[in-house]
Design a protein around this nucleic acid. Structure first.
Length: 319
DNA sequence: AATCCGGGGGG
DNA sequence: CCCCCAGGATT
């Protein structure tokens, strides 16, 4: 869960998760749907699928006990050098280094690493430094201390060098250029595309579709979602729905635009609208057709059986 | 080596 | 608006 996700975000998810899946057997035997459900809102859903696979591998190949050999750990899906080193150093007191966001910042400043830490050569340098520094005694404490230092003192902006216990050895601090490190090349820009999600409500059911393998949220359930037409939105949308779902619909005026979240999706539209929407939404009026401009969404991963019969047409097309 | 996954924190 | 987050897999 902590891979590319902030600690504060993870904590409540982690608590619920370990309560629901206390050991490898429980997790391995749980349906993937249930695991994804527990992951809902965290993003990077591949991690949940891989964790599920890893639990099954641990049960099958390691008798349900987490392997202690670093190479065996690395073979588990979703576990790379950082995660393997972190688990084995912290839990089993094995001497392995860790390199992640915090230690990258600390080490790159401590040694004024001039190379781009996003590049392979920069990473090699950092792993080498971390490997040389981690002690045989209490390596897990050392690694956590390094990460904690990066999280509390050696922050990305406005680092607290005055209270840093190792600032007297810090090359970047000596150079008065702490904030110039770590060196990174600018990220690729992210482009946004306008999409329209459609909520089709019939009695207490709602039409969902499963995201295809090559689109975002692959394999997960979502409202039917389409690129927003340039013009003639209503008629173009109706045509897309007819072609995609085999449903003949007529769109009236589309009065509401709002961001939507389906994390707490229940089944009726008013709940969806009232949980996370922003803007002027009247939840009391049960509109049949609502246009949603997708700005931010959470995945929808409901137990969709209740509405699945409305999906047979589109499902057949996908399979 | 570059790209993708993704919601959310915080300036 | 921006950059980044206790990374890893895929291409």
């Amino acid at each position: 869960m902590l891979q590319q996700t902030q600690v504060a975000t993870v904590v409540p998810y982690f608590s619920r998760f370990v309560e629901q899946f206390p050991d490898a057997h429980t997790l391995a035997q749980a349906p993937l749907e249930q695991v994804l459900r527990a992951w809902e809102g965290l993003g990077y859903y591949r991690r949940a699928r891989q964790l599920h696979q890893a639990a099954q591998m641990i049960v099958r190949d390691h008798g349900g006990e987490f392997p202690q050999d670093i190479d065996a750990v690395r073979r588990l899906p979703g576990i790379g050098r950082y995660t393997a080193g972190a688990v084995l150093s912290i839990a089993l007191n094995q001497r392995h280094p860790v390199v992640e966001a915090n230690t990258i910042r600390v080490l790159s400043r401590l040694f004024a690493v001039a190379i781009d830490v996003g590049k392979e050569s920069g990473r090699r340098t950092l792993w080498s430094l971390a490997e040389q520094l981690v002690p045989a005694a209490r390596p897990g404490d050392f690694n956590q201390a390094l990460m904690e230092l990066g999280g509390t003192i050696c922050k990305r902006r406005d680092p607290n060098c005055e209270n840093c216990p190792i600032s007297r050895w810090c090359r970047a601090a000596q150079l008065r250029q702490v904030e110039r490190f770590p060196r990174k090349s600018p990220r690729a820009k992210v482009t946004f595309q306008q999409e329209v999600a459609v909520v089709v409500q019939r009695q207490r059911s709602v039409v969902l579709r499963r995201c295809g393998p090559d689109e975002r949220w692959a394999g997960m359930w979502d409202f039917p979602r389409y690129r927003r037409p340039e013009r003639n939105v209503e008629s173009a949308l109706a045509e897309m729905i007819r072609a995609d779902l085999g449903l003949s619909v007529q769109l009236h005026s589309l009065p509401w635009r709002f961001k939507y979240s389906v994390t707490r999706y229940r089944i009726d539209l008013t709940t969806v609208a009232s949980t996370r929407c922003r803007g002027r939404i009247k939840t009391s009026s049960p509109a049949k057709w609502v246009k949603i401009e997708e700005m931010e969404t959470f995945p929808l991963n409901v137990s969709a059986r209740r509405v699945a019969r409305q999906l047979r047409l589109s499902q057949r097309k996908l399979n």
